[in-house]
Design a protein around this nucleic acid. Structure first.
Lengths: 202, 202
DNA sequence: AGCCATATGGTAGTCACTACCAAAATCCTA
DNA sequence: TAGGATTTTGGTAGTGACTACCATATGGCT
C-alpha cells in the first residue's frame, strides 16, 4: 500500500471525526460543510470527493457495517434459512458493537435531524433489499414471484429484529447485551410470544 | 366551510397535481420548484406554505393514509393483538387502494430518486413508531421496557407485511388483490411458512 | 531529476429552502 | 354596503448544500 492510500485514509478519517465533533457540539443543522472542511483543513471540494453528502459523513460507518454483513453472508456456506437469518443478524450486531460510541452518535443525530433519519432509513431499506437478493438464491422452490415475496419478508424480519435490538441497546446503554437481546427477540417471534396475525378463513 | 378553505384546498390539490405531472414528464430531479409554482400559477413562497419540502409534494398522500390508519386504530375498540395488527394492515391497504395511480407514481418516483426514497422510508419509520405507541396501551403486562420491545416488534411486523404487499401490488398491477396477498403473507408468518430464526440454546 | 497520474483548492453557478415585508383578497361588523 | 381586521399571497434577499470545471500541487515511477 503506497503513501497515497495511507494519506487518503487518514484524510477521510480526519474529515469524518471532525464532522462528528462539530455535529455533537453545535448540532447537525447548525454545522456547515465549510466549517467541517475548515476544521479538517481541506477545501470543501475535497470533502465532497470523499463523502457524497453531508448525511453521508454521519452514516458511512453504519453503511459499511451493513454492506459488510451482506457480503459476508453471501460468502457463507449454504445453511437453513432460520440459521442464516440468525447469523446475519448477529453479524450486523457484532459489527455495530465494535464501535458503540459511533453508533450512539449516529442515532442521536438521526433523532435530532429529519434528513439524517431519512437517509438512515434509506440505508436500512437498501440493506433489506440486498439481503433479500442473497436470500432468493438460498431458498428452494421455482415460483420466482413467491420466492421474492418470501425472501423480502424474511429480510424484513431480520431487519426488524436488528433495528429494535439496536434501539434498546442505544436507549439503555450498558444494561443489555445485543446478542442476548437479539436471541430474545427471535425467540419471541418464533414461539408466538409476539402474536402474529393469522387468518381465520378457509 | 367558508370560501377561504375551499380555495385553499383547491390550490393545494392544484399544486400537487401539477407537481406529479411535471415529475412524471421530466423526472423529479429535473423539475424545479419554480417550475411547479409557475405551472400552478402561484409564487414559490406560496408553494412552500402548503408543502414543507419538494419531497413532501410527492409523499403527502401516503403520509395521510398512514396517519389516518393510526388514528383509526387508536379509536377502535380494544381487540386481541393479532386481530388488531390484521385490522391496521388492511386499513392501510384499503386507503392506498383507493388511489392506485397515485401510489404507483409515488413508488416510481421513489425508485428513481434517492431523496424521495429516503423521505418515504422515514415516513414509514414514523408510522411504525406511532403504531407501536398505540400498541403499548393495548398490550397487557407491567414491564414497560419489555412492553415497548414487543410493541415495536409487532409494529415492525405489520409494516413489513404492508411494504411487501404494496411492492408486489405495484410491480404486478392488476394481477393481485392487496388484501388477499396480505392474508397470504400473514398466514406465511404465523404458520412458519417463513421460517423464523429460533434459538437452540437453553 | 523529470515525467505522469492523481489529489487538491478555488471559482462560479444552480437550486432548495427561509425570513421578511408590502400588497391583495377574504371576512366580519357597523 | 363601506371600512377595518385578518388572512393569504408574491416578491426580495439571503443561506447553504451541492456540481462542474480548471489550474496547481503532490506523490509515484524511471
Amino acid at each position: 500500500m503506497g503513501l497515497r492510500e495511507v494519506k487518503r485514509e487518514r484524510t477521510r478519517r480526519l474529515i469524518a471525526d471532525k464532522a462528528f465533533e462539530l455535529f455533537s457540539d453545535n448540532g447537525f443543522g447548525r454545522t456547515t460543510v465549510e466549517q467541517i472542511a475548515a476544521a479538517a483543513e481541506v477545501g470543501p471540494s475535497t470533502l465532497y470527493r470523499y463523502f457524497p453528502t453531508k448525511e453521508g459523513l454521519v452514516l458511512e460507518f453504519v453503511d459499511d457495517c451493513l454492506a459488510d454483513a451482506v457480503d459476508w453472508f453471501h460468502q457463507q456456506p449454504s445453511m437453513e434459512l432460520p440459521d442464516g437469518l440468525r447469523a446475519v443478524i448477529e453479524r450486523v450486531l457484532e459489527q455495530l458493537e465494535a464501535n458503540p460510541d459511533r453508533v450512539r452518535a449516529v442515532f442521536d443525530l438521526a433523532e435530532q435531524n429529519g434528513s439524517v433519519s431519512a437517509h438512515l432509513n434509506e440505508l436500512i431499506w437498501r440493506f433489506r433489499n440486498d439481503l433479500a437478493d442473497v436470500l432468493i438464491r438460498r431458498l428452494p422452490g421455482d415460483d420466482l414471484r413467491n420466492l421474492e415475496f418470501v425472501a423480502a419478508l424474511s429480510a424484513g424480519i431480520a431487519m426488524n429484529v436488528i433495528e429494535n435490538v439496536v434501539r434498546v441497546w442505544v436507549d439503555h446503554p450498558g444494561t443489555v447485551d445485543a446478542k442476548t437481546l437479539a436471541r430474545q427477540a427471535m425467540r419471541l417471534l418464533s414461539s408466538g410470544g409476539v402474536p402474529l396475525p393469522g387468518t381465520h378463513d378457509a
